[in-house]
Design a protein around this nucleic acid. Sequence first.
DNA 1: GAGGTCAACTTGATTT
DNA 2: AAATCAAGTTGACCTC
Length: 215
Amino acid sequence: MGEEEMCDTTLGLGIGKGGWKEGKDRRCEADPAVRLHLWFPSFPKKEIEEEEEEEVEEERKQRLITKRKSEEDDDDDNKLQGARKKLRLNPEQSNILEESFRAHNTLTSFQKEELAQKLGLLPRQVEVWFQNRRARTKLKQTEVDCEVLRTWCESLRDENRRLRMELQELRFYTEVSKVEGTRLCSSCEELMSMEEKGRGFDLGKKRARVFQLCN
DNA sequence: GAGGTCAACTTGATTT
DNA sequence: AAATCAAGTTGACCTC
């Protein structure tokens, strides 16, 4: 048996600072002060891998069986054989997942494993649930943002409408003053020339001054 | 039966 | 290369 075919049979347990790193890199970075190493007799790596695969497969089958048993409606089981059957999480599972999502909307692999074990689900199912949950949150937030923008747009449209009316009114008064031969005072002429040059000015103030000074 | 919801899947990008 | 994510899609199931 070659060295490469042997697997690492030591088990390490540490006490001290360090632990599961949060964030993108979620590997265990423990550097404990006290360390315990256990050694077990070695088996060929291939054999162990095969055994592990079998265990995983068995576990998967068992979970599927449990899941099926928990489904209330089994009437059409024969029809559904081979088809994808929809899993419905029970209220307790949903609550725990929601609670966990509120605490952190992403999972470390350790948290995923832990949660899956707690809920009797596969880690993959927990992962999928979190992915879908993030998607739902984002969609909801987009809807909220959309509503805010819509309201803002509406108010800007109102403001624009009001200003256009005001401008129209002002133009009317200047036309009337021209027809009636009312002379504009120097201040109003200045304001009019500002408008022609397209510079910013206060329409309300202008109208007030045209009224006060020219009529 | 139409439409909504949601778990599961696919794909492509990114990170480590 | 593997793990993870977002975005998009599929399909089972439910409600009206």
